[in-house]
Amino acid sequence: MAKTLTQEFTKGLWEEIAPFRLVLGLCPVLGVTTTVENGIGMGLATTFVLVFSNLLVASLRNIIPSKVRIACFIIIIATFVVVTELLMQAFAYTLFLKLGVFIPLIVVNCIVLGRAEAFASKNSITLSIADGLGIGIGFTLSLAALGSLRELFGANNLTIWTTPTSVIGVQEVFGPHFQPFSFMVQAPGAFVCLGLMLCIMNLLGSK
């Protein structure tokens, strides 16, 4: 079972990419992926929490009594979620306004608790950080992929980042006469897109 650092990192990007392979953490996947920007922002926030909670859980794994481990994990995770929320308010307020309630909801994201319980509480600190980074970046990529599909067809835009004065990204990708499918940016569009992506992932994986 001895895996190398790179293996632990890369497994999160493809083999165990959380939303598509493990079908975990779907609440933010469906909720915030109306634009690429929201997807990336949410993904990075989750990655931040994941890396630091994995780091702390792994370093305290011999101290935490097994009977109260879940309570300890939740304290650790909740702390980093609030830290993320404060940092986001201070440095990326527009993003904070868009993501709103989904930031505090990272506390109950089963990916974060799942990695703490299944991986970080049994492995060394370096392996846990690699695991957290890998899963987190995989999660960010998944959100960005779903977000770009939905924004592209639903709003005819691809926004990477907005500042109060300018927008980084492409507007009106298909030209000004394209009529966007507003269905795509609504909740049912999220389910349909996710279903199609799961289907493609399964097709690719079955070979």
Binding site: P65, C72, I75, I76, T79
Partner: peptide, 13 residues
């Protein structure tokens, strides 16, 4: 352990 963790978390926050 729980108390110490909660106190540290409160301090950090």
């Amino acid at each position: 352990v729980l108390t110490v963790l909660a106190v540290l978390s409160g301090g950090l926050l």
